[in-house]
Amino acid sequence: MAYRALEKIINLYDGYCRPFQVDGRPLLLIQDGNRPYLLLNRCPHMDARMDNASLDAGNIRCPVHGIQFNLESGVAVGPLASCLKQLQKLPLVYEGGTVGVDL
């Protein structure tokens, strides 16, 4: 595994949302409620990119279909929850004032 820095921790803020491409994988680093999350940059519903998604009280809303997902659990919110796959989250790694990923 190799560490890849994505962002300086000091640059993160609530509402931060930035896409990255690491080893051919589309990733999305976001922060909501003073907590950063690293997601695969795709909606589990139909693979829509999530980098234009809106964040609201611990949820992320797909900009294409409007489906909300809980950031903590990855589970869809609402009547479709049992029909949809979860968001794919990746563990964040902190190193030397940066946040990144081991892939």
Rank of each mutant, 00 (worst) to 15 (best):
A2L: 08
Y3H: 07
Y3Q: 03
R4C: 06
R4H: 15
R4V: 14
R4I: 13
A5P: 15
L6Q: 11
L6D: 10
E7T: 05
I9A: 10
I10S: 15
N11R: 14
L12A: 14
Y13I: 07
Y13D: 05
D14L: 04
D14K: 04
D14G: 08
G15S: 14
G15A: 11
G15N: 10
C17G: 01
P19E: 10
F20I: 04
Q21R: 10
Q21G: 03
Q21A: 00
Q21E: 14
D23K: 13
D23F: 00
D23C: 05
G24N: 05
P26H: 09
P26Q: 01
L27G: 05
L27I: 04
L28P: 08
L29C: 11
L29Y: 14
I30T: 06
I30D: 02
Q31K: 09
Q31A: 09
D32E: 12
G33V: 04
G33H: 02
G33D: 10
N34F: 06
N34C: 09
R35E: 15
L38N: 05
L39N: 01
L40E: 14
R42M: 05
C43P: 08
P44W: 14
D47T: 10
D47F: 09
A48R: 04
A48W: 06
R49N: 04
R49S: 12
R49Y: 01
D51G: 07
N52D: 10
N52F: 03
N52I: 06
A53T: 10
A53K: 12
A53M: 02
A53C: 13
L55S: 01
D56A: 13
D56W: 11
D56C: 08
G58V: 05
N59R: 07
I60N: 01
P63M: 03
V64Q: 07
H65N: 05
H65G: 00
H65P: 09
H65A: 03
G66A: 06
Q68M: 09
E72W: 01
S73Q: 00
S73E: 03
G74Y: 08
G74P: 00
G78C: 13
P79N: 11
L80F: 14
L80Q: 12
S82L: 12
S82M: 10
L84R: 06
L84Y: 00
K85N: 10
L87T: 02
L87D: 07
Q88V: 15
L90A: 09
P91S: 14
L92D: 09
L92V: 14
L92E: 02
V93M: 07
V93H: 12
Y94A: 04
Y94E: 10
E95C: 12
E95W: 08
G96I: 05
G97K: 13
T98N: 08
T98I: 00
V99M: 04
G100N: 00
V101Q: 01
D102E: 13
D102F: 05
L103Y: 13
